[in-house]
Design a binder for these strands. Sequence first.
DNA 1: CTGTTAGCGCTTTCAA
DNA 2: TTGAAAGCGCTAACAG
Lengths: 296, 296
Amino acid sequence: MAEVGYVPNLVAGGLAATRTRIVAAIVPYIQHGVFADAVQGLTDGLRQAGYCVLLGSSGGVAKEEETIIRTLLGHRPAGLVIQGANHTDATRALLVKANIPIVEMGTLTDTPVDMCVGYSNREAACGAVGHMIATGCRRIGLVVAPIASNDRHSQRLMGYVDALERVGITHDSSLVATARGFNFNDGCTAVASLLDRHPDLDGLFCASDIWAMSALAECRKRGIQVPAELSVCGFNDQEFSSELSPPLTTVRVPRLEIGAHAAELIIARLSNQPIAARKTDVGFELVLRESTLPAS
Amino acid sequence: MAEVGYVPNLVAGGLAATRTRIVAAIVPYIQHGVFADAVQGLTDGLRQAGYCVLLGSSGGVAKEEETIIRTLLGHRPAGLVIQGANHTDATRALLVKANIPIVEMGTLTDTPVDMCVGYSNREAACGAVGHMIATGCRRIGLVVAPIASNDRHSQRLMGYVDALERVGITHDSSLVATARGFNFNDGCTAVASLLDRHPDLDGLFCASDIWAMSALAECRKRGIQVPAELSVCGFNDQEFSSELSPPLTTVRVPRLEIGAHAAELIIARLSNQPIAARKTDVGFELVLRESTLPAS
DNA sequence: CTGTTAGCGCTTTCAA
DNA sequence: TTGAAAGCGCTAACAG
């Protein structure tokens, strides 16, 4: 049969069985290394169990996310994986109503739609900023994504504030710059405005390595010594981060593993196996390199 | 209707209409920035026309690719997009028989299964190596992917040979190192073996920026000055490439645009619009930075 | 255990 | 123009 080149019609099969072998995945940007890694882990994990990934990219816009989810759900996926945990009410309702296994990735929440696998963005950011404080930084800037539309980055902002308050530094919101997107140039714009407004900064926490890369470039341009004059810390430990000049201090998160674990959770649910926990903490690790001062 | 939270069953719709609004996409690695960019362009372009992307990752293995394509084709996609143009005979037969619009990305071939959009890997590599030769390099190493399974990289190898022969240098195959995968460490291994065997190299062309990043790291480790002692050139112009130390000379290719154009082609076909050409050359650009000697 | 039949939820066609 | 009916190609449930 296979010799004749027969390819079974999975659409008909899906209709008949009222369940497909498709899992929907929604990420803000496929291009972003962090999400790409998670999708890779997810795809590989699912493939072994015979599932395909139906991919959607929201651009980080909640309303877009809703539209995409509606479409993807129309294809009656057996499960759904999504980045983050802050969705519109309509989205949440849609997800609940779909009545399929759902994994929210990259964050931890006590109220997942169904399951979540990630790490504490707040604690990770607090740890990173805490390290900068421990090495003597007192005036620390922050570059984040628009916090209204990005729960992980709003958590990182909270972690930043936590670390400051812990040592009695009051949070100055003018030290926070919002980057428009996850591109090098978006980071440059944000960092430049921060550096213009606050020449007295002695630390800069960039909630994405790509912006830390922008920061290093901007500092080079302005003749600011890193870390002597300004400590720079990133987030994600992307592959290039150790190769920047200076090598970047950052927070390492198990990106591929997050996707792989999401796949396991979905598959387990689909085969009626028990789930260890609705919430899986994959942890994080502070990677100390040369863009921050050494701990004394 | 939408207020009640009704989500139309696209599976039933697909069966009834005998055509879905799904386009299959197969790339070697989702993680690799180049493919992620192409998939992003594709996804965004298709979404506007109401199509979703069903994603597959082959790991660069031809046999895997075949299996994945068979599965994806089972979902009766309206079109299919795939990286590269060297497929197994069975794969080609499968694609032809599917009788849907197909775009092969990232390469140019005179015998596409249906359509292709990309650039000449051979000419691009020839241009890059030609530049190194023009700046005085005579003993140039090459780092590529396994050429048997990667048509784009085998084209780059040909371009490398072209450039050498043009100035009368005979190709020495011991100067070619194969990197196992597209990771920093894979590049380190390949570069290290090359540097060990050939301490007299004065140039190194890495067919992927990630390996050029490895090369810069390896040179730093060994105290080799770049470009004074060894010129290094990459391929792809990834976002980090300008931020390495020294900034990397590389070949820029319109990654996002390739995906976006593939989307346009598929959509045009699906709406019975005429296609300008089966073969679209999106070109490339040599980006000269500091990891190669200045042209004198 | 094998063979048959009734749908799955839509689109499309054809009749009213 | 609107409405009814016939499938799309499978799976699952049932009867033999």
